[in-house]
């Protein structure tokens, strides 16, 4: 009797293990090409992609480059030469234009290619399956709307200002500047556009500390393309005797960096651009294509709902854009802001 019970138990356990193994069997490997995760935004992108891949049942292999397109090109050659069968690729080029050759090589492998973060270059449509990521034109437009709103509410002069932009050649910087300038045309005067040499506070401070005194008495606003640069610009403004939010309006437009400047009202407001959700939606797009097998022509601006992320059953469009919900510049507004079930604090303070 004991033997029979033991054998039954053993058989049940074996069956259970086999079922678990079958259930956990991977749907394939997704290879993600990205710049280095030493940049916290890219670290968040990877985290989002990995969590969504695990949810959908894919293995994920992340290949990082050290902010170097030649290195990324070489990694693509090595990946393709390995002959590994993959479920698909996620492609975040370090230099969008310079990476087109590698993008074409990936597409020629026959596996689906999802481009993310860098808006695809016109004429390359045949080399990628779908774009899923940020829309930098929209980011610039949102920042302009935040600034115009702050100017309208303020009882202060708000006309001439400057753009402190990302380094020349960074397409996100070009697109954000275009989106911003289109939105403020005829409403605000852009008297200077100065590129930084980087994306962080120290580079923002270097530029802001020099252009604010150079245009003293003229500048009434600054657009800096992200909140790290905006926070540094606010510090430089204070050192030059200007009170941010009163004498000068500063907007970054993407929550990246220390949120205290937004919460305190020094920055006119911000918008959530989440690295986590960008990686997540790139992976979701790939999963959708594998299941649905088709791409709908046109653009889809995913809704920035506070609670639930978009459904996997929604159609995949050629262009799928991450929402940029604006957040007002107060502690209460910041605490209340949510995107797809995660708070601004979770999405911006990484």
């Amino acid at each position: 009797m004991k033997l029979r019970v033991s054998m039954t138990l053993a058989a049940s356990m074996l069956a259970g293990l086999m079922a678990t193994a079958a259930y956990a069997e991977s749907k394939g490997t997704v290879v993600v090409f990205v710049p280095s995760s030493t940049n916290p935004y890219i670290g968040q992108f990877q985290l989002g992609a990995k969590e969504k891949a695990a949810e959908l049942g894919y293995d994920i292999k992340v290949i990082e480059n050290n902010f170097n397109q030649s290195e990324q090109d070489s990694q693509v050659q090595q990946q393709l030469a390995s002959g590994e069968t993959v479920a698909g690729y996620i492609w975040w080029p370090f230099e969008n234009a310079a990476g087109v050759g590698s993008l074409r090589a990936l597409s020629q492998s026959g596996a689906p290619v999802i481009v993310s973060n860098q808006y695809p270059i016109k004429g390359t449509e045949a080399y990628w399956t779908a774009y899923a990521g940020a829309n930098d034109f929209l980011s610039g437009k949102t920042a302009a709307e935040i600034l115009l709103d702050a100017c309208a509410k303020a009882d202060a002069k708000c006309d001439k200002g400057a753009i402190i932009r990302f380094p020349a050649g960074v397409s996100a910087g070009d697109d954000r500047a275009t989106g911003f300038e289109d939105a403020v045309k005829g409403k605000l005067d852009v008297i200077d556009v100065v590129p930084t040499a980087g994306f962080l506070e120290d580079e923002g401070y270097k530029v802001a500390a020099q252009i604010i005194p150079a245009h003293k008495g003229e500048l009434t606003w600054l657009y800096t393309q992200n909140d790290s640069l905006a926070g540094a610009a606010a510090q430089a403004a204070r050192e030059n005797g200007l009170t941010p939010g009163k004498d000068i309006f500063i907007v970054g437009g993407t929550c990246h960096g220390d949120s205290k400047h937004v919460k305190s009202g020094e920055i006119a407001g911000t918008a959530i651009q989440s690295g986590y959700w960008e990686g997540w939606m790139a992976m979701q797009a790939l999963g959708k294509f594998v299941v649905q097998g088709k791409v709908v022509d046109g653009e889809s601006y995913l809704e920035g709902t506070p609670d639930a992320p978009p459904s996997d059953a929604d159609p995949l469009y050629k262009y799928n854009f991450l929402p940029n919900p604006a957040v007002a510049n107060s502690q209460a507004a910041y605490d209340a802001a949510k995107l797809w079930g995660k708070t601004a604090d979770q999405l911006c303070n990484f």
């Binding site: 916290p40 980087g198 962080l200 120290d202 510090q235 960096g257």
Partner: peptide, 16 residues
């Protein structure tokens, strides 16, 4: 001094 000025540190500081 950089960390003190901005009250934060990141691994990609001072690149280049």
């Amino acid at each position: 001094m950089t960390v003190s000025q901005f009250s934060q540190a990141k691994a990609d500081l001072f690149m280049g």
